[in-house]
Design a protein around this nucleic acid. Structure first.
Lengths: 212, 212
DNA sequence: TTCTGTTTTAAACGTACGTTTGAAACCTCT
DNA sequence: AGAGGTTTCAAACGTACGTTTAAAACAGAA
């Protein structure tokens, strides 16, 4: 089933190490060692470290982006009557997955997303914009349908605010989990946190506009 | 007035470069060159690059932390009747400042905060926890007073959500500014964004709890 | 001025990085 | 079995990093 060819092994090792340590901090020597392959393999199969970083993101984003597109396509003619809850629900369901394995990988995904936003990797930002901007715009248009009382410029901002809540929270999830555990004795699962994140974001999106 | 001694020049150069490129990506050679001092100056005055990073944060955080403490102290006996808007207002006013110069530096601060959260600099997380955890707990306690209908564990989470919105948004502020400009033709000042960020966060904090 | 401690300087050190190389190993056809 | 193309491998390359060093420059007190 899983070929476990060298390229795949490299992607597996890289995504985990990148998520743990960041891009600049993760060396090709660490990646190739974890993957159990030769140091030169990265440059042979991907060309460079930058290209490997992009490949890691692409492997995450492409299925995600495709799944969202499929969901949005199913709307058909009913685009006008879509709700905020439905839109966010689609994202959440696809992002966090069902099985424990999937959720574990979702955390890596969020951590990487946070890194992509933070680290000055300009090539990554260009890559994202070029490849996924259209999807974001389509989603934003639906958001405008769902919340017609909020102007589009404000929804653009609020989607960034919401994205910030989610990525920031989930990228530091494991460490926050520890803090929360020792402060309150509550073990928190990823799904539990998302369950509590959602009302926060929904309320933020629905906040009355113009009421200074 | 400003001594502009070597250590200060180094902190000035370092905080700007760190904010632009991240910690690992900024070399001591770049810092010392920008500061116009000798390469060895960092190790002479601070001991190491890590220590310089901490010093940069300390110069930002200590006055900020002190100012907040002073504001909270002024509450005196009225701690019980503090409002959410007042608590957030204190933070906002102190964080973004008044003059344009202050706001410019505030952006650097947010960018650094985002970096500190994202990059795996464990020494920084330890430094933060050890030095500012008490203040955060005090603030959280006041938040519980202001929103007694929301349980503390939930407020702990929501404060992380809110922090995420703010830091995530403002750390990528300049790039978002460009996108927003070209998409909607709106030039956005920092104060304008914060003005729109605040209702989002307030609504999130006030979201009814338990209404799944 | 001379002495003493501090600061600055140019140069070098050792290390670790991403990348390149050329030969060996492997695979797949005929 | 052997040729040809692909993949792996150990080794090395060149570069850039953080740090150290030892001498020079500077400062203030005696």
């Amino acid at each position: 089933m899983t070929h476990h060819d060298t390229a795949t092994k490299l992607l597996d090792a890289a995504e985990q190490l990148f998520a743990e340590q960041g891009f600049a901090e993760t060396t090709l020597r660490a990646i190739t060692q974890k993957a159990g392959v030769n140091l030169a393999a990265v440059n042979y199969h991907f060309g460079s470290k930058e290209a490997l970083i992009q490949a890691v993101f692409q492997r995450f984003m492409d299925p995600f982006s495709e799944a969202i597109t499929k969901q949005l396509d199913q709307l058909g003619e009913h685009e006008e009557m879509v709700t905020l809850e439905w839109l966010l629900g689609v994202l959440v369901a696809l992002a966090i997955g069902n099985t424990e394995k999937e959720q574990e990988r979702a955390l890596i995904f969020f951590r990487l997303a946070g890194l992509a936003y933070t680290q000055s990797q300009d090539h990554l930002r260009r890559f994202f914009k070029q490849r996924y901007a259209a999807l974001f715009e389509r989603y934003l248009r639906l958001l405008c349908n769902a919340l017609p009382e909020i102007p589009p410029t404000e929804l653009f901002l609020r989607s960034h605010f919401a994205l910030g809540s989610v990525i920031f929270t989930l990228q530091g999830f494991t460490s926050m989990q520890q803090i929360s555990q020792q402060d309150f004795g509550n073990p928190l699962g990823l799904d539990k946190v998302v369950e509590r994140l959602l009302p926060f974001v929904v309320a933020g999106f629905r906040a009355p506009y113009g009421a200074s």
